[in-house]
Nucleic acid binder design. Sequence first.
DNA 1: CAATTGACGTAATGTTATAACATCACTATT
DNA 2: AATAGTGATGTTATAACATTACGTCAATTG
Lengths: 132, 132
Amino acid sequence: MTKSAELSNKQQLVMDLLEKKPNPMSAYMILDQLRDSGFRAPLQIYRALEKLIGMGRVHRLESLNAFIACSHISCEKGGATAFVICDRCENVQEVCDESVSLFLAGLTQKAKFRASKSSIELHGICNACEEA
Amino acid sequence: MTKSAELSNKQQLVMDLLEKKPNPMSAYMILDQLRDSGFRAPLQIYRALEKLIGMGRVHRLESLNAFIACSHISCEKGGATAFVICDRCENVQEVCDESVSLFLAGLTQKAKFRASKSSIELHGICNACEEA
DNA sequence: CAATTGACGTAATGTTATAACATCACTATT
DNA sequence: AATAGTGATGTTATAACATTACGTCAATTG
């Protein structure tokens, strides 16, 4: 529920909802939850998400077609992030340390590539679920 | 155009098409190209793709909702792969060496996780396009 | 032979995302 | 005040991607 002067009303509503949920949400789930707040069409959700993603406050999970609030302050500063996603409980861990950026740096060098965006997503079962 | 006894007729047609294309194709692109070969519905494509992906002969690119033939023999043996995707020419490089598996091993360890699937996709501009 | 399995056929539907076009609120400039 | 630019918004329609549900058929195997 972090407040940000730069967000419009609608953008803030989407941000707040995502920050309340620990799990990823699809755009249409978000829409369903926000109908009472004045959202009526998918595009309204996608537009807000686009902004929030651009600011680094929300991440898109490509392998789920879903969205999640960033759990770090650091991501807003542009570091690359890896997502570790439990397929049982849908919990998502964000890993955003040097190992990620070093790995990506090595990759771009090997591939002779100018990278602009990365998507690193690992699926499996988290420890908590494993023990349960 | 690698031959494989284990493939059905339809599966082979999809495999052949993907092996002819250097670039990723969506399921619906594949369908369009294979209408004359007897494919009539998306599901027929998705079923063939599911098999081929299971065998490691085709990869799904989550960030593109598209599919590409595996360019390594090694991937069929189960090694994790990273994809480096040029957004200009759509060329895809598959990286499938130790750096990838080591990175993933570190990640699962840090996250206390039992991984079953990974998706590593890097977008940007390749060297050839950069110089053009 | 009966039962199982895997591939296939078809229609309908579900889910995710964007195009196209119009309007409104705010700001800066003339 | 008038003008023009910008970013957010509203609405409808449609594109693009994927699966459910149901049924058929042939090969395999207990």
